[in-house]
Lab assay of single mutants.
Amino acid sequence: MISLIAALAVDRVIGMENAMPWNLPADLAWFKRNTLNKPVIMGRHTWESIGRPLPGRKNIILSSQPGTDDRVTWVKSVDEAIAACGDVPEIMVIGGGRVYEQFLPKAQKLYLTHIDAEVEGDTHFPDYEPDDWESVFSEFHDADAQNSHSYCFEILERR
Rank of each mutant, 00 (worst) to 15 (best):
V78P: 15
S150F: 05
Q108R: 10
R52A: 14
E129R: 12
M42L: 15
L28K: 00
M42T: 01
V99T: 05
Y151F: 05
R44N: 15
G121H: 00
R98T: 06
N147Q: 07
S77L: 08
T73A: 11
D11W: 03
W133Y: 12
R98W: 14
S138A: 06
E154W: 07
T35V: 01
P25L: 09
L62S: 01
R57V: 00
N23M: 13
E120H: 13
T73D: 08
L8R: 04
P39E: 05
D70I: 13
P126W: 04
L28V: 01
K76G: 12
P89Y: 11
I50K: 01
V78W: 13
S150H: 06
P66D: 08
G86L: 07
R33E: 14
E118I: 11
E90C: 06
G56K: 07
E17G: 13
M92C: 15
I91L: 14
V13M: 05
T123G: 01
A143Y: 08
Y100N: 00
G97N: 05
D11V: 03
I91G: 12
I155S: 02
H124A: 14
G86N: 09
E157T: 06
W30V: 03
D144S: 07
V88S: 11
W133L: 03
V88E: 10
F137G: 06
R52E: 12
D69K: 06
E48G: 15
E48P: 03
W133N: 04
S64Y: 11
V78L: 09
N37V: 09
I60W: 02
P39C: 11
W74A: 06
E139K: 08
Q146Y: 07
A84V: 09
E139L: 07
P89H: 09
D87S: 08
L28G: 02
D127P: 12
F153Y: 06
H114D: 02
N18C: 06
A26L: 04
D144H: 04
M92I: 14
T68W: 12
H45Q: 10
E120P: 04
E90H: 07
Y100G: 01
A9H: 01
S64N: 14
S49V: 06
G67D: 15
R158N: 05
Q102L: 14
D131T: 05
P130G: 12
W30L: 10
Q146W: 08
Y100Q: 01
W133F: 13
I5S: 00
V88Q: 11
F153A: 03
G67Q: 12
M16T: 04
T123S: 07
